[in-house]
Design a protein around this nucleic acid. Structure first.
Lengths: 257, 257
DNA sequence: AATTGTTTGTGTTGTTCTGACACAATGATA
DNA sequence: TATCATTGTGTCAGAACAACACAAACAATT
């Protein structure tokens, strides 16, 4: 089954293609300039900023739908992508936004247009390598850009809430599983990894203790190269050892009881 | 808005009342006889066992819908209830089960009956005080009973998967937040709490270390009563200090970084 | 080529947390 | 009153953790 490309067919006849009532939104996070970035769309006409989202094809797995949206906006495949929450308030979706957009596009939607129904939204978050992303707006938006998470204004509908819940989830998960590497290039230095942690957790960490704890996990491979070019001592490059990581996951990284 | 009670109206005309495509399933856990129990329904006609579930009213919050299902099956309100995962495989719902049920009820459903559509399901889990529950079957089932989680056979559709994911989530969360008290009566002894932990985690714990770690959280109140009647030294009763718990939650119980 | 400034790599120490264990106190029963 | 199983509490060694100091490396400056 092909996903329709034409705006009018897609919007007007969504009920032909998509599962009713269900939408999804993706919080796509990247790391650049020592800052956490989130990928946002600027909607046509309204100019409102929104998270990339989409709908689920009638015969499509929800996870596949999320991966599809991620691919369409970033070009990336096989990426760390997890559902984190369902947003199901009855008044969360707002048909009037879509109505205005359609009207400004010269389309007069019927009052029972598919888009005006109530949607619940499944929230997904993705951790991506900033450098590998080619942001690409969809048919409904004029821009698709990275925004510093500290410089986010008011987003469409409940998207601020969705974003915050995603960040909260990432922070929690970072404490229990070393997911941070997903945001870095394949080779990275220990200071870079630490800065990433400090940024996500919004907390300063001790350089030496961080190094010790991190290496103790046994999931990093220190390479024989160093990152030259900085004006100071060249730090070693590390890469992530996926095999050891999978092993560690099974045992659980830190216990609890 | 009233929820319809009549089976025929409810099943036949679900599209009048409920959000399409969206269902929810509740994993309701209790603790009894030193065993974790889950509340299951035995479906009419097919005799298959299933998790209690339901649909979301058109103007209803998904959380409210889950609370409603919980109330209808157990009589309980204001209970620990959390969504934990969305099950969105395209082939997970199985209209044929409903079709057979309807046929045996003497109802000939039309092929485009609302029940035969694809449903995604939002999984919720609840932790309840076993003694306070009055299990009550719904219009579609003959029994509503507690089952030991070690004696669960094959459940309807993907309900085994849903149950397992719920248990996995509870185990993880138990390591980070003291949610166990939800499964116990208001007053409980330390050995009872420990047995609960051992049952959920399926692991023996040291009595003294457990006591130390548990009290260190500072969220238990030791009462001046003891539980007499056992053939041995009477253990103290404890109760849960909700105020201190909320405080502790904000700070995060165990850190990580 | 030597000096300087800043950053990285690693070691040490004292404190806290955790796991393994011992013994006294209690309550029903015989 | 003695017995037995269970509970309450203490101790100790090892691990984990936070706070800290110093040497090595790199590039820019002189």
């Amino acid at each position: 089954m092909q996903v329709p490309n034409q705006l009018s067919a897609f919007i007007q006849e969504g009920d032909k293609w998509f599962l009713p009532s269900v939408s999804l939104d993706c919080v796509i996070l990247g790391f650049h300039d020592n800052q956490l970035k989130v990928l946002l769309l600027k909607l046509k006409h309204s100019g409102v900023w929104a998270l990339p989202g989409g709908f689920v094809l009638k015969e499509e797995d929800t996870e596949t739908a999320a991966a599809r949206v991620l691919k369409e906006r970033t070009g990336l495949q096989d990426i760390f992508l997890q559902q984190f929450h369902v947003f199901g308030a009855p008044n969360r979706s707002d048909g009037s936004i879509h109505r205005k957009g359609l009207l400004k596009s010269g389309i007069e939607p019927s009052p029972d247009n598919w888009l005006f129904q109530r949607f619940i939204s499944i929230g997904y978050y993705a951790l991506v390598d900033f450098a590998h992303v080619t942001p690409f707006p969809d048919e409904n938006s004029t821009e698709c850009v990275w925004k510093d998470i500290h410089e986010i204004g008011s987003l469409m509908m409940d998207h601020n809430e969705i974003l915050n819940k995603a960040l909260e989830t990432v922070r929690l998960q970072l404490n229990h599983q070393p997911i941070g590497y997903n945001l870095l290039p394949q080779k990275f230095t220990m200071p870079e990894l630490q800065t990433l942690y400090e940024t996500i957790l919004d907390k300063q960490l001790d350089r030496r203790n961080f190094h010790r704890k991190m290496t103790a996990f046994g999931i990093l491979k220190r390479l024989k190269e160093t990152r030259k070019g900085g004006a100071h001592r060249a730090p070693f490059l590390y890469s992530f050892d996926m095999r050891k990581y999978q092993k560690a996951l099974k045992q659980g990284l830190n216990g609890g009881w």
